[in-house]
Design a protein around this nucleic acid. Structure first.
Lengths: 336, 336
DNA sequence: TTGAAAGCGCTAACAT
DNA sequence: ATGTTAGCGCTTTCAA
């Protein structure tokens, strides 16, 4: 393994100069620089990055803690993170938790041991006190999740108002019995979407009927099962706001198996705007969450912390958008 | 930052002993060990992993080169890799290429600079000579892709025979005009699936009609467009084998927009068995590719190389399976 | 079973 | 603009 000293000797300069050529080329006279570069090329010298990391105690690596990489929403956020990190010369270390809190705690060691320069959490189920403690010492950003009462830098959408928009859309379409299938209620996002749903009903003078609020787990199957249950009600809903797109497909399938069709007999709105919602037949009306952008912004925010860039803002709320497709029936009306 | 020496002093032992307690506890007398561990606890000592990596010139990190993390197939393989790596104390560094070959070359530097202990490629579009060269020097495994004429450790399925199975399934169902929408033909997997399709036709004494073979790009839209084109043919196909599931949904949609329905008027078989194929309505008959398993196996194979475990086998071909759902019409027959 | 000591390859402060 | 030098924190060989 050829090392910096070998290059230095061959070029008749000191190690320091070689180091400078690599890290601060402008501080070296052009002639010297060219000579050194030529030798580097000739010897096919590769700097030992581990030595550099050690010496500088920085790694140019960020840790991304994901509940589940196989989930479309997370993989797209991850895509955005990877993109922004790469653009800025940083690498991404992956940490899958499989929703286990203990794993989140484990990965904290990476920060403490300086194996990474910072961390992005896509899920924060740890104790808030601990998170607050960690935040004080290391660069951390939260995205895709949200934590109340703690000033952690966060990139998110406004889930409450987005859910309100989705629900209102159904109300404006003339529905008064609008159901909601929630995500797992231990997640803040699920709580927020539920809150927005409630707000929309109340602001439109509609009663909140708890029988029309059922908890799902974001899976197609849970959407199917909860909808099947509600269809057997004496007064079944005529519209459903599902907390994500995958459950929305379960809702539509349940209606179909019950002899109803969406949107004619049941209007459905989903959430996330994953590819599935555009591909599914009928196309699913949904709230578009800028997943890639969220990841990108989160990474940028983290890199600012790492490099010490002044941050005026620490909480970013990105825009979400109602995408009207077929499942809500709005297009049916327009066709009249 | 408390360092090893601090622990040593407090425990009245040498740095060497502390190091041993951490890395080879069995070589230290129990009493000493306990004392040291107590001090470590007490001082909340965290070893500087960067120093360790540098000193040992190993990183316990593997690099995963992915064409696109946002693609379901890749994210599931990645899930398997992450799982196996984690189980064995290794970390996963993510490298997205966005299908750019130059990026693949760039990431090679991570290996050369010893920033990672090995590399898993989910796409190998680099020059074979270079790959062969790299393989000789560093642990490398290929999965999800396949390279002819080079003995690189590989984990894959048999795309040719899987595609043959898929196509034969349609032929057995009575179809003689079976179309194929391929993936991008510069990819080996697309070529292989096309080959399997051809074999099935020939083995069943059916002509290969090139007008029924159209190249897609794995997207819903390309499936839709290519199918729309074929439906306008004088003798349109009655069945389609699509090289992936997403294009299969495009095929079904195109048929629908043409006034036909699947499977009644057009039988469709996809490939991959991503979640979408189970959720879609009609459920898509497809070839199940064990994505998670592939990732897991690939990681294990790589770790064997890294740790110097004897490898009897270097090419793993995992089992794929035909999953019969609604889109092919087989269930229609059974209902008779 | 433990300690002493060298040194991994680089960077950066300081000197020239 | 370039060189000298110390040292980052750990692991490991050798000696005791």
């Amino acid at each position: 393994m050829v090392k910096m000293n070998d290059v230095a000797e061959r070029a008749n300069v000191s190690k320091a100069t070689v180091s400078r050529v690599l890290r601060n080329p402008e501080t070296v006279k052009k002639a010297t620089r060219d000579k050194v570069l030529a030798i580097i090329e000739q010897l096919n010298y590769q700097p030992n990055i581990l030595a550099r990391h050690f010496r500088r105690s920085e790694t140019n690596t960020i840790l991304v803690v994901v509940p589940n990489i196989m989930n479309t929403v997370f993989s797209h956020i991850l895509g955005g993170i990877e993109h922004a990190a790469g653009e800025n010369g940083y690498r991404v270390l992956l940490a899958n938790t499989n929703q286990q809190v203990e794993k989140e705690y484990e990965y904290l060691d990476h920060l403490k041991q300086r194996q990474v320069d910072g961390m992005i959490l896509l899920s924060a189920r740890m104790d808030k006190g601990i998170i607050a403690e960690v935040m004080k010492q290391y660069p951390v950003v939260l995205t895709a999740d949200y934590l109340e009462g703690i000033a952690i830098p966060t990139v998110s959408i406004d889930n409450v108002s987005s859910a309100r928009t989705a629900t209102e859309h159904l109300i404006k379409l003339g529905h008064s019995r609008v159901a909601h299938i929630t995500g797992p209620l231990h997640l803040q996002v699920s709580q927020d979407r539920l809150k927005g749903y409630r707000q929309a009903l109340l602001q439109n003078n509609l009663d909140v009927d708890n029988i029309l609020i059922q908890e799902g787990d974001f899976s197609h199957e849970s959407g199917y099962n909860q909808m099947t249950k509600m269809l057997a009600l004496e007064h079944p809903p005529t519209a459903v706001f599902s907390a994500n797109d995958e459950m929305a497909t379960g809702v539509i399938k349940a209606a179909k198996d019950y002899g109803l069709s969406a949107p004619e007999d049941l209007a459905v709105v989903g959430f996330d705007n994953i590819k599935l919602s555009a591909i599914y037949d009928p196309g699913i009306t949904t709230i578009a969450q800028p997943m890639f952008e969220m990841g990108k912004k989160a990474a940028e925010l983290l890199l600012h912390q790492i490099t010490g860039v002044e941050m005026t803002k620490r909480q970013y709320v990105l825009e979400s958008e109602l995408i009207i497709r077929d499942s809500c029936g709005a297009k049916l009306l327009n066709d009249d």
